[in-house]
């Protein structure tokens, strides 16, 4: 049985490719790969060398501009910069804040997106369609604006406090706290998760739900035993993209968060520009990269699994 739903015809079209024109496909696919190798892969390798204190070659310029650079005495580098960053209690606090915000935002986003998706699937109607349309809107609002709008909405003289003040209630100020960062992250991540999850849920045949209902399954049973497992791959894709997006985010925490502790994206930028300590900044980038790679592995595994279920691997 295939776990990943539908569109079999499309997949089959890729499953039987024209093997004869092998080299042409390879060369057509090359330009974006070269671009990425050149401007992502290569800088990452270079930056890794810099982070372990190899300051020769192309790293020479940045090493001479930057302050507090740990230089390696030998060819295999030194972990000094990593040790410095990982023993800095402020950065460690930033790290735990980053992980916490990422986990919390992802859970809320997936919960909301699942709610909207199930609403649309099981009930449909005008309200459900309006709701799913509404959830897409943040996709089209630049993150800078969204962050600024959220700060003004939840600030000391913002909407939330104004409304509560009408009833004489003193509401908390959420702007420039981690609460606002979570709100901002959820706000900006919601559209993608909703698109992924609704399209996954919509692809499940209604007959299946009807059959389960006839067999006596209740609402919760249908959701847990049929809808979520059948839409597992899209849900996992939504989870990974949301988590990766939040863990490396900069604009939202920069605008809506406190000065310290804040997420690593902000500290990274501070260390690079304001403190002029590029090596420490790069070390933080690699710490976030390790976290993101762990999340990304789940995504690759899920896609591999769905391909396997369809008998393609």
């Amino acid at each position: 049985m295939t776990l990943a739903p539908t569109r079999g015809s499309k997949r089959r079209a890729i499953a039987t490719p024209a093997v004869a024109r092998r080299p042409l496909g390879f060369f057509l696919a090359l330009p974006p790969i070269i671009l990425i190798l050149l401007f992502v892969g290569f800088p990452i390798v270079l930056a890794f060398a810099f982070s372990i204190g190899l300051t020769g070659g192309l790293n020479h310029v940045i090493a001479s501009i930057g302050l507090n650079v740990h230089e390696a005495e030998n060819w295999w580098g030194t972990p000094a910069a990593y040790i410095e960053v990982l023993s800095n209690s402020r950065i460690l606090r930033d790290l735990s804040v980053t992980v916490g915000v990422t986990a919390l935002s992802t859970v809320i986003v997936i919960f909301l997106a699942l709610g909207i998706g199930l609403f649309l699937k099981l009930r449909d109607g005008r309200m459900a369609r309006l709701l799913s349309g509404l959830a897409i809107i943040p996709l089209f609002i630049p993150v800078v604006i969204a962050s600024w709008a959220i700060v003004t909405f939840y600030s000391g003289d913002g909407f939330v406090r104004s409304v509560f003040a009408q009833f004489g209630v003193e509401a908390p100020v959420w702007a420039f706290t981690m609460v606002a960062v979570v709100i901002g992250s959820v706000w900006t991540s919601l559209p993608f998760a909703v698109l992924m999850i609704t399209s996954g849920l919509q692809a499940i045949p209604n007959a299946m739900i009807e059959a389960a209902r006839d067999a006596g399954a209740g609402f919760l049973r249908i959701v847990v035993s049929i809808l979520i497992p059948m839409a597992f791959v899209p849900i996992l894709i939504a989870v990974t993209f949301t988590a990766i997006g939040v863990v490396g985010s900069f604009t939202v925490p920069y605008f809506t968060g406190p000065n310290a502790p804040n997420m690593l994206g902000v500290s990274m930028s501070n260390y690079f520009s304001a403190f002029n300590q590029p090596q420490q900044s790069v070390v933080m980038a690699f710490i976030v990269f390790v976290i993101a790679s762990g999340i990304a592995a789940a995504y690759v595994w899920a896609n591999f699994r769905s391909a396997k279920d369809q008998g393609k691997v």
Partner: peptide
């Protein structure tokens, strides 16, 4: 290649820009 394209997404944007910036200096 497909997974490699995805790796681009996995590296934190700010971290990527910081690493790119050190290359761009050179």
């Amino acid at each position: 290649f497909l997974i490699g394209l995805f790796a681009l997404n996995a590296f934190p944007k700010m971290g990527l820009y910081v690493t790119i910036a050190s290359l761009f200096y050179a």
